[in-house]
Design a protein around this nucleic acid. Structure first.
Lengths: 225, 225
DNA sequence: ACCTGAACACCGTTCAAGT
DNA sequence: ACCTGAACACCGTTCAAGT
């Protein structure tokens, strides 16, 4: 009884009760420690000192787990817009933030491509993009499709970066292939050379692509079709 | 000796010798029979009546296997252009063909997103796209980035379709989430409604997106940056 | 030299059985 | 009612050992 705060000092019990929240916390911890590739139901269960079966009481499957995790990280992003920042700058910034978020953990981007990270924070992201496009004069169906397209680009880019960082295939491999292009069968590629396809930093390339897509949305016929 | 063509009638021996070609043939057969999700090294080995280790003599890993398979299917596509067809129609057609090809087999699109399908046929595809963009007045670095962007879109779309067809998540789930958008926190989404995001057939949406991207490439500054 | 059986180190998901 | 041990049905990749 001499120590006044034994509870706060050793507050974590060996096995806190399971819950969606606790599972997500553990998932974040696993990803931080070992990377998203290691985030599996089994690894997650062992982090929580239980068997994998127990997780299925709270999470439907791996896809849902990833969707929950993405939404959680989305909550850490700034998804507001004060309108003092030009819409185009804000749009580029939020897409860059989103892509970085997904790319930071290899498995996330692939998951986002295939599943809707359906949560409150994802809706915040959609809402922000819709607002930004509206202020650019794009509304209705065209805006919805634009948002779709922009997010798809950000997600696919992130998946690419993550794969590249994972080291599967080097950019130099690609360069080699292009440099070997037969001048008769592939005159354009031969003339262009590999440098063209690998020029610029990823950030700079992304900025170019985002601008091109936004320009495309602005240029597309307002009536749809 | 009474039968004249015993060899041709039972030409296939129980175990044809392994080779890159034979492995790829077997891969095509497996995918045709059971879908690309079932195309695994182990399943492929069993199709060839051998152990999985044997495949590694000819194929570096699963990623390379998928890249080879994509290039093989690319060989079945028409990648020529007679210039009688308007460049924009031809461009939309080839992207649609490519996306359909990748979507036809769930695992392929995901693989293409992460790996360069480095083969002669993939170079044909790049060459065709470069030619089409050139005839639209886009050359050099801008063309290279445009090709990159167009292919990324086609690949990501295919990955999405394939996932949807795989049935992971219904469009109706998404509609439910959007319909439940809080009018105060998400006024744009609330006003837009789920219908906006799900309007139109996939084909029609793809056509819109392709056009928007092409418009964007045309609009983007020729000087780069 | 070439090939491969068997092993290593994992997966996601289910369900019968326990508390 | 809630939870989970154990099993089912798989993975990719490596390497020592065989021919």
């Amino acid at each position: 009884m001499s120590r006044p705060e034994p509870v706060s000092r050793r507050a974590r019990p060996a096995k806190p009760p399971l819950s969606r929240g606790a599972i997500l916390d553990a998932a974040v911890a696993v990803v931080q420690k070992e990377g998203a590739a290691k985030l599996t139901m089994r690894r997650l269960a062992s982090e929580l000192d239980t068997g994998p079966a127990s997780l299925y009481v709270y999470v439907k499957n791996t896809t849902e787990l990833n969707a929950l995790l993405i939404d959680r990280h989305l909550g850490e992003l700034d998804l507001t817009w004060g309108e003092s920042e030009p819409w185009r700058d804000r749009l580029e910034r939020v897409l860059d933030d989103y892509a970085r978020l997904l790319a930071s953990q290899p498995g996330l981007a692939a998951a986002a491509l295939v599943t809707w990270p359906d949560g409150a924070h994802y809706l915040d992201l959609l809402e922000l993009l819709m607002r930004l496009l509206r202020s650019a004069g794009v509304t209705g169906e065209r805006a919805a499709r634009g948002v779709d397209l922009l997010l798809q680009y950000a997600t696919a880019s992130a998946a690419e970066w993550a794969a590249r960082a994972g080291g599967e295939q080097e950019l130099s491999d690609l360069a080699e292939i292009l440099d070997a292009a037969d001048p008769h069968r592939h005159p354009e590629l031969h003339a262009a050379g590999a440098a063209l396809f690998t020029a610029g930093s990823p950030e700079e390339r992304t900025r170019w692509a985002t601008r091109a897509i936004v320009d495309g949305i602005l240029a597309s016929a307002p009536g749809g079709a």
